[in-house]
């Protein structure tokens, strides 16, 4: 088995269809949609087409969980024990089990919401964070950035379930949130341990995380304003070990990503 599996080699059955973020950014409709603001973009039951938007996001969570499972699995295999200590591998194995359960939960939730496996396309940008050649960078990319995003998304979906009175959605998201908080903590602990004597490595890892966090803000998908469908879950992030400064920084990165996304849409429209 080869080490370092690139995203294009992720194995999927015939139901899955892959898409790229660029296709979405270059969609000529984006520019026109931005002229149609009709209120807060946050995903909530009282917003237009909320059911289909929730189904779509739930499918995104499902494919994201598959990629998180694959990323944790690869971290165990790609590195020997001089690069990834035995105890780190044990934590990654535990994360594999958790992510496998999240995939199961997501499939069941998808069924509950009337969504078929593969109904929506899959982008592999989440797994890309798990392709860094340094395990510390992977921990920052996967356990802190990806799992941090998962906290934000699950919290949004949990609120959606709560407000809509959907007992299954609220129940499942709450359980998954509990695991994700653990995974973020795990990432933060290992980041400290592995870089205790190497401040430069720590800085490289945090830089990588900033890049990934900006990427995961998806041009305004996640943030703290009315224009963001998914909001930063500050309290849960604090519980997971993020400092207020770190959360503020993610909020700033999200805002920057939104502005850049808007500029990219305008540039694509005028090209």
């Amino acid at each position: 088995m080869r080490k370092q599996l690139p995203p294009e080699m992720l194995a999927r059955d015939s139901r899955f269809v892959r898409t790229s973020i660029m296709d979405q950014i270059l969609d000529p409709r984006n520019r026109k949609i931005s002229e149609r603001t009709i209120g807060p973009a946050k995903l909530a039951p009282g917003r237009p087409a909320s059911a289909d938007r929730a189904r779509n996001l739930m499918h995104g969570i499902f494919t994201g969980e598959i990629q998180a499972l694959e990323g944790a699995g690869r971290t165990m295999f790609d590195f020997d024990e001089t690069e990834a200590p035995f105890a780190l591998k044990l934590d990654m194995a535990r994360q594999c089990w958790d992510e496998a359960r999240h995939v199961e939960i997501s499939i069941k939730l998808g069924e509950w919401m009337g969504t078929e496996i593969g109904e929506f396309t899959e982008a592999t940008f989440l797994y890309e964070a798990a392709c860094a050649p340094d395990p510390v960078l992977r921990l920052c990319g996967v356990n802190r950035a990806l799992e941090g995003l998962a906290i934000d998304v699950f919290n949004t979906m949990k609120e959606f379930g709560d407000v809509s009175g959907d007992p299954v959605l609220e129940f499942c998201e709450d359980w998954m949130l509990a695991d994700e908080v653990t995974h973020v903590k795990m990432g933060s602990d290992w980041l400290r341990r592995l870089t205790a004597d190497d401040p430069e490595r720590l800085e490289r890892a945090l830089d990588f995380q900033r890049t990934v966090d900006k990427l995961f803000s998806l041009g305004g998908f996640r943030g703290e304003t009315d224009e963001n469908p998914v909001h930063l879950a500050r309290k849960l992030r604090e519980m997971a070990g993020f400092s207020t400064t770190e959360i503020d920084e993610i909020a700033e990165l999200s805002e920057l990503a939104r502005a850049e996304g808007k500029a990219a849409v305008e540039a694509a429209g005028s090209a």
Binding site: M1, L5, M9, L10, A11, R12, D13, I66, L69, E70, A72, G73, R74, T75, M76, F77, D78, K89, L90, M92, A93, R94, C96, W97, E99, A100, R101, V103, E104, I107, I117, Y127
Partner: peptide
Amino acid sequence: FEALGGWIATVPELDVKMILGRHCYHHAW
């Protein structure tokens, strides 16, 4: 457990993928 973890991304069958993820932890334990 390293092999099972590595293979998760290489098997297209969804049920196998999830089972490998679960078994992987058992062997790590």
